[in-house]
């Protein structure tokens, strides 16, 4: 089941999105470009601030680490040079997470990163911040030599390793976070599989998928392209009626 993406659930933020997978629901809000405090101001580019709010309680070291990872991911995606001396602010609130029941924290955290990345990206698109391209963060687990993409709680429980990999539209790897015990071939297998799925999610329907990895079978529907395309159509609907 592909992730569900709802754009613009919040009306006061510049851009917002809800991203739902079998594991997590994340509400993201993006604002920018904003005025930046003098301490964070960069003379040639926009500063990016990411705030992660956990499902319950206040954030701690774990959230600071996630914020750091998502910030550097967004920094490589947003065209920061277009907005010098400003701030792009992304707030990510986890609204649903799987129950703790025996799930290793490190595994759960890597799984959450995938959702945070996708939600932040969708919110930035909705906010109209200039981006260098499209990206998808895929999540996969390896258990006994078998790869499961977009795992549910059950698959996550007994997995040997978990991998969150962000792929850009030109097939470049923007982020990779893996935890568990795994070999390098296993890692390459999961990353390759996630790449195929990411390319599938942003594939253009009209074109023949030649640039998509050869020999990739069982392509997923281009869920990201559909979700973004719908929002563009909705935004331009007034032209038709007027």
């Amino acid at each position: 089941m592909p992730p569900t993406l709802t754009l613009h659930p919040l009306h006061r933020a510049d851009g917002s999105a809800t991203h739902t997978t079998p594991l997590f629901t994340i509400l993201a809000a993006a604002n920018g470009p904003l005025e930046v405090s003098r301490r964070d101001e960069l003379p040639e580019e926009a500063a990016i601030e990411v705030n992660v709010r956990p499902c319950s309680g206040v954030g701690g070291p774990r959230e600071r680490w996630m914020e750091g990872v998502i910030t550097s991911l967004l920094k490589s995606l947003v065209l920061v040079n277009m907005y010098p001396r400003t701030l792009v602010q992304v707030t990510l609130q986890v609204t649903k997470e799987p129950g703790m029941g025996g799930l290793k924290r490190a595994v759960k955290d890597v799984a959450l990163l995938a959702g945070l990345g996708n939600a932040a990206f969708a919110a930035l698109v909705d906010a109209g911040v200039a981006l260098g391209g499209t990206m998808v963060v895929g999540l996969g687990v390896a258990r006994e030599g078998e790869v499961v993409v977009e795992p549910g709680e059950k698959e996550l429980l007994g997995c040997g390793s978990v991998h969150a990999v962000a792929w850009g539209m030109r097939g470049e790897m923007l982020m990779a976070e893996s935890a568990g015990r795994f070999g390098v071939e296993e890692w390459e297998g999961v990353a390759g599989r996630l790449r195929g799925d990411a390319m599938g999610a942003i594939k253009n329907d009209e074109e023949d998928g030649d640039d998509v990895m050869d020999g990739e079978v069982g392509q997923k529907e281009p869920w990201l392209r559909q979700a973004l395309g719908e929002s563009v159509r909705d935004a331009g609907a007034w032209r038709e009626t007027g």
Binding site: K75, G180, G183, W187
Partner: peptide, 10 residues
């Protein structure tokens, strides 16, 4: 491998 962490570029 126990951990792979990579971010910030392509």
């Amino acid at each position: 491998l126990l951990r792979v962490e990579k971010s910030g570029g392509a």
